[in-house]
Amino acid sequence: MKILVPVKRVVDYNVKIRVKADQTGVDLANVKMSMNPFCEIAVEEAVRLQEAGTATEIIVVSVGPTQAQETIRTALAMGADRGILVQTDEQIEPLGLAKILKGVIEEEKPDMVILGKQAIDGDNNQTGQMLAALLGWSQGTFASEIALDGDKLTVTREIDGGLQTIKLAMPAIVTADLRLNEPRYASLPNIMKAKKKPIDEKTIADYSADAAPRLEIVKVTEPAAREAGIKVETVNELVDKLKNVAGVI
C-alpha cells in the first residue's frame, strides 16, 4: 500500500509570534520554522504502517517555498521514502492546496493519504476534508487510532463528547489528532540517509490546479489583552472576591 503524507512548514510551536505593526500579518523574519506538529504525527503514523508491513512506500509532499525542502528532509529522516516539493512563494489557501494535492494524488495514486488535522499557523482545519471531497473519498478526521481491516479502514476519532469509531471505504483520507502517536526523533544515521533520498521539484502549473487566493486578509491584529489582575493572599479572600466583587459564585 502506498501512502501519501502532505506536510507543512510553519512557525515552530514554541515561538511566541509577533503581529507586524502595519497589521499585514505575522512577522516571519528570522523566526524558527519547523514541520507542523500534526504533520509530524501523520508522518509517524505512515512510518509505523510501513514498519508493520502494511505500507510499501511513503511519499511526502509539501507545497511551499524552497525552504520547505528542509521540512520534507525531516520527514525523510523519520522514514519516508521520497519527497515532492511543489514550489511556490504564494500563500496557498486550503481549497487551492486541496486542488494541488488532488493533482499529486492523480499522478501518484496512493491508497491512503494521512495529513495533520490542522496547521498551527492558519488554524483552518480544512485541507484533508476538502481533499476527500474533491477526490470523492471517505474521510476519517481527528484520528486517535487507525486499523486496516481487509479493504476497510477503521478509524477512532476524537469528538467533543469522547471517541467515535467509524469504518471507511478505501481509498481514504485520514487526518491526525494529537493522540494518534508520539512522533520519533530522527537518528543521526537516518538524517544522513535522508540526504540521499530523492525530492522531485514541481510547480503548481504541473498539476494545472487553480490555487489563486480567493480571500482578502483585511488586517491581522493583536488579540485584546486582559487587564492585569490581583494576587490574593488566602482562600478566604479569594472566595470573598468571587462572591462580593466579581459576583460569579
Binding site: N124, N125, Q126, M130, L134, F142, R157
Partner: peptide, 22 residues
C-alpha cells in the same frame, strides 16, 4: 464543533467555495 469541523470543509470543496473557520 468537532462535527462541524468534520463536515463543513467537505461541503465547501464540493461547492467550490472557501471556508472561513472559527
Amino acid at each position: 464543533s468537532t462535527n462541524g469541523k468534520n463536515f463543513m470543509p467537505r461541503i465547501a470543496a464540493l461547492l467550490d467555495c472557501s471556508q472561513i473557520s472559527d
